[in-house]
Simulated assay, not measured.
Amino acid sequence: MKSESSNNHEEFLRLFTANESAIRAYVRCLVPTRDDAADIMQGISLVLWGKFHELEELDGFRSWALAVARYETLAWHRDRARDRLVLAGDVLGMIAIDSAQQEKRLSAQRDALENCLKQLPVDKRHLVLGAYEPGVCIQEVAEQSGRTVAAFYQWLHRMRLRLRDCCRRSLETEGLS
């Protein structure tokens, strides 16, 4: 039987892994370099794990994590206030609020796209996703589809339009367009 600590650890890792890219993107909007964001992310992950037991609703993990990220980033900026190239606190606060609002919109868009992709037949979904794999040779994907490269690009364009329209309808239904 797993201990409660082990269950908490697994749940934290599941939630953190699912939301890490969104948290990192949020932090990246607020700091000048990727290295700065990486440093701040280490601190954020420690704070999140240390305070995970305080989180009442697991569904609110992303919002909670983004709030922690905001405070950790503000603390990072405060610690570097001696630098001549630091944004004023009120400007940083406005950027943080705007970034959080953008994240909500982008999250809804990602969810809509994921749902629209699930609606595609498996073979078409495989080809669309295959075209965006890192390091993919588009000619190989075109051959898998039985099309020339030019014909595959035309087909892919039509599929992107279809997915875009599906996402728009989904977001409009949810009142998020």
Score class of each variant (00 low, 15 high):
F52M: 05
R160M: 04
N115H: 14
V86A: 14
P121V: 02
D35E: 13
V136S: 06
W155K: 01
V136M: 07
L87H: 08
Y26F: 12
G93I: 11
S21C: 01
S170L: 01
D79S: 08
Q144I: 05
N115Y: 11
L48T: 00
R147Q: 12
L161T: 05
G135Q: 01
T33N: 10
V122L: 12
S3M: 01
T173Y: 06
K124T: 11
L127W: 01
A151N: 11
D35G: 07
L58P: 10
S45R: 14
D79I: 01
L74H: 15
R84Q: 13
A100I: 00
F12V: 05
H9Y: 14
D36C: 00
A25P: 00
A38V: 02
L74C: 08
L156T: 01
L120G: 00
M1S: 02
R82Q: 13
L13V: 14
A151M: 09
S63L: 11
Q144F: 06
A67E: 14
R80F: 06
Q144G: 05
L171D: 02
A151R: 09
R62G: 11
A69H: 07
V122P: 06
A75S: 10
L48K: 00
E4P: 09
H157E: 09
A37V: 02
R70V: 02
E114H: 08
R14G: 07
G89R: 13
V27S: 03
A75L: 13
I23L: 07
D98F: 03
K124E: 14
G146V: 02
R84P: 13
I97W: 08
S170W: 08
S170N: 11
L92T: 02
M41Y: 02
A150V: 06
A75F: 09
R169L: 09
V68Q: 04
E11M: 11
E174A: 15
L129M: 11
L15N: 03
I97R: 13
C29Q: 13
E140S: 12
A96N: 00
L117E: 13
T73Y: 14
R24T: 05
N115R: 15
F152W: 12
L58M: 10
I23H: 02
R169S: 07
L156W: 05
S63H: 11
E56V: 14
V31A: 03
Y26K: 09
R70A: 13
A37S: 07
D36E: 04
E172N: 04
A18Q: 12
A142L: 06
D83Y: 07
D83R: 12
D111A: 10
D79W: 06
V47Y: 04
G50S: 08
S107Y: 12
R147M: 15
L176V: 04
A69V: 08
Q144T: 07
G93K: 10
A18F: 02
L156Y: 09
L87N: 04
L129Q: 12
E20I: 08
A65L: 02
D35T: 09
R80I: 03
N8C: 05
Y71T: 11
R78T: 14
D39F: 00
E133Q: 15
R24S: 03
H53K: 09
C166D: 01
N19H: 11
P121G: 01
R14T: 11
T173K: 15
E72L: 06
R28T: 08
L127G: 01
I40G: 00
G89M: 14
W76K: 03
R84Y: 10
H77C: 06
R34G: 01
D83M: 08
K2I: 13
L127R: 03
I44L: 04
D35H: 12
S21H: 12
A38P: 00
G60I: 04
A75Q: 11
F16R: 01
